[in-house]
Design a protein around this nucleic acid. Structure first.
Length: 590
RNA sequence: GCGCCCGUAGCUCAGUUGGAUAGAGCACCUGGCUUCGAACCAGGUGGUCGGAGGUUCGAGUCCUUCCGGGCGCGCCA
């Protein structure tokens, strides 16, 4: 409808140009938008105001000429000039009501589009280090990434959902060491657990599982293990520190590898990694988050050197202070970045570069990174690397997700990963349910900090927006059940034939909302803004509740009843389509 | 100090390429269930859109500058 009006305006503009009213070289953006105020009609265009200056005439005069040049259309009931020179379009009632037929015909397809057809896009999200369970901070990235992927899919893009598993770094070795040390403790060994080790309860669980699998086969002499290792950091009573926790843990890792040998070390390492990956996968699955690919960092370890070499050959690297630097300042970064350390090992950034190259080589037109806002410093260097490798940096897109702050009883819930006193995603889900969690995480713009009110998310009351929307769905289902109880039935064809009986203002509001859904969904996908969907669903539910309270559906008048029920079914369909996109359930009874 | 994000009603937030009288929810006040589900609805109170300049027919939206808040600035991952 909107595009047809824009085409008609374009034709009218061409007529004005050929009549000499408008200079031929003027090329304004022809835009038709929905109105906010129904008294302004259904659609409006500001074209006349844009043309006023180049045409040297008053906006309202230009508008008059444009309207005169518009072809007549059965879809449009009236076209009027309003305000400073807006052209307002009033859509005919039959066209307005026809949306019911479209919704019921298209069903779960209604609202989906093909704007992204033929384009491959990857959404990488969460990608938390597999060194412990996911916490609530990861939850927002999970919910947003999953929903954005759903939106893109609905817009016709070929979407791939990926989790990048950081299974190669030093942190993984520290986890393996932590698991092994807990394993040794369970065998009776006593020693001071390194301050830099992972201290969470889950490490004990993994160690216990390891012991039940291998028995005492992995036990080694601990006094020998700790001998010669730099002292761990300790804090004296006066606050002064001694020792070096970083060197302590690194040397312990080396000693452990030596004591166990490669095979046994790998056994411990994989045991820890596999256990945590399994935990994360299960957790995300229960959160209704699906992935197409769990991409292992180790699988591209061998590509890092190759990529560094490519950058070197292209002249983007230089040596200084014994290490190798990437000249990212040449691409707008505020400082250059090390890719090969003075000890010869490559940096984490070098792995990222290899990963970028790998992604783009897989042929994605667009690659989305769903990052926590604390990662914003990486954006410029990532794009710099992308460009240096000869790729278009615009193919990378970074969504910086602001933090979610939990509130319980009006108090901020403290979050500290370091001390291990964090709320896990699993705990959150068990406390408020997956529906509320998914909804709350995406209900705000991702650029905005999120106040996550646990009490509100749990409340089964009118304050809770999730229930509000689900209730609208359940209410419609309830009406359809009541229809059965009264021995009546719904005939869709009959309903579609009597749509002209929908004349109430509440019905007109719902028809407009239904017609808006495809436009909104497309915009939400292209701007990567799931909160537009939650906002829309709230409006649609409100429209339904208002309608429900002002009119009866199961009326004696058969034609009117059929028409109203077909409208209800259309509303229910769009509620389902919207809630499905954010993976919130659609209960028939609450 | 530099960089990114944010600042809209008492609170939490929407506001589509710049568009008409800036909107919701919560809170507060008033009213509505012998009726298809009151987990609902209708109405009301509440605003210098952080401040100041600028761009233009028109600015919450764009530009400049200042103020306030969050985050980031490792040969960590």
């Amino acid at each position: 409808m909107k595009t047809r009006l824009e085409e008609q305006l374009a034709d009218a503009l061409a007529t004005l140009k050929s009549d000499g009213l408008v200079p031929p070289d003027v090329a304004p953006a022809i835009a038709v938008t929905r109105t906010k105020d129904p008294t302004h009609g259904d659609f409006a265009s500001n074209l006349a105001m844009q043309l006023a200056k180049p045409a040297g005439r008053k906006p309202r005069d230009v508008a008059e000429a444009l309207i005169a040049a518009l072809p007549s259309s059965a879809e449009v009931r009236d076209v009027v000039i309003a305000g400073p020179g807006f052209i307002n379009f009033f859509v005919s009632d039959a066209t307005q009501a026809d949306v019911v037929r479209r919704v019921l015909d298209d069903g779960e397809q209604y609202g989906r589009s093909q704007v992204g057809a033929g384009k491959r896009v990857q959404v990488e999200f969460v990608s938390a280090n597999p060194t412990g369970p996911l916490h609530v901070g990861h939850g927002r990235g999970a919910a947003l990434g999953a929903t954005i992927a759903n939106l893109l899919d609905a817009a016709g893009f070929d979407v791939q959902r990926e989790y990048y598993v950081n299974d190669a770094g030093r942190q993984m070795s520290i986890l393996a060491l932590s698991v092994w040390l807990r394993y040794l403790e369970k065998g009776g060994a006593t020693f001071a657990f390194p301050s830099n080790g992972y201290r969470g309860e889950y490490v004990h669980d993994i160690a216990a599982a390891l012991r039940s699998e291998v028995g005492s086969d992995l036990e080694r002499d601990t006094t020998a293990l700790f001998s010669g290792v730099t002292d761990d950091e300790t804090v004296a009573a006066d606050g002064s520190t001694s020792g070096d926790k970083e060197a302590h843990v690194d040397e312990l890792i080396e000693a452990a590898q030596a004591a166990l040998g490669d095979n046994a070390w790998k056994l411990v390492f994989d045991h820890g990694l596999d256990a945590i990956i399994a935990d994360i996968r299960g957790d995300l699955a229960d959160f209704r988050v699906r992935y197409d690919e769990w991409f292992s960092e180790r699988s591209i370890e061998g590509d890092v050197a190759t990529v560094v070499e490519r950058l070197d050959k292209a002249g983007h690297l230089y040596k200084q202070d014994g290490s190798t630097w990437f000249r990212s300042t040449a691409f707008g970064d505020d400082k250059d970045r090390v890719v090969v350390r003075s000890d010869g090992r490559t940096t984490y950034f070098a792995s990222d570069i290899a990963y970028i190259d790998n992604k783009l080589a897989r042929g994605f037109d667009q690659v989305l990174y769903v990052f926590g806002a604390d990662h914003h410093g990486y954006v410029v260097r990532m794009q710099a690397a992308c460009e240096a490798l000869g790729h278009d940096p615009k193919r990378l897109e970074f969504l910086l997700i602001q933090f979610a702050i939990l509130y319980r009883g009006g108090e901020r819930v403290p979050m500290s990963t370091r001390s291990g006193s964090f709320v896990t995603l699993r705990e959150l889900r068990e406390e408020v349910g997956a529906d509320a969690a998914r909804w709350f995480y995406v209900m705000r713009r991702y650029q905005q900090h999120l106040d996550f009110d646990l009490d509100l998310a749990k409340s089964r009351s009118n304050e809770n927006p999730v229930y509000y929307v689900q209730y609208a769905h359940a209410r419609i289902c309830s009406v359809m059940r009541e229809l059965d109880n009264k021995g009546l039935s719904f005939d869709q064809a009959a309903g579609l034939a009597t749509l002209d009986r929908l004349v109430e203002p509440q019905e007109a509001d719902l028809l407009t909302l239904l017609a808006t859904w495809p436009e909104l969904l497309e915009r939400a996908a292209l701007t990567r803004e799931p909160h537009q969907v939650t906002g829309y669903l709230r409006d649609l539910a409100n429209g339904l509740h208002t309608y429900y309270n002002s009119h009866k559906f199961l009326v004696e008048d058969d034609a009117l009843r059929q028409a109203r029920l077909s409208l209800l079914c259309a509303v229910r369909q769009v509620l389902v389509n919207g809630l499905t996109l954010i993976d919130v359930s659609t209960p028939e009874v609450m």
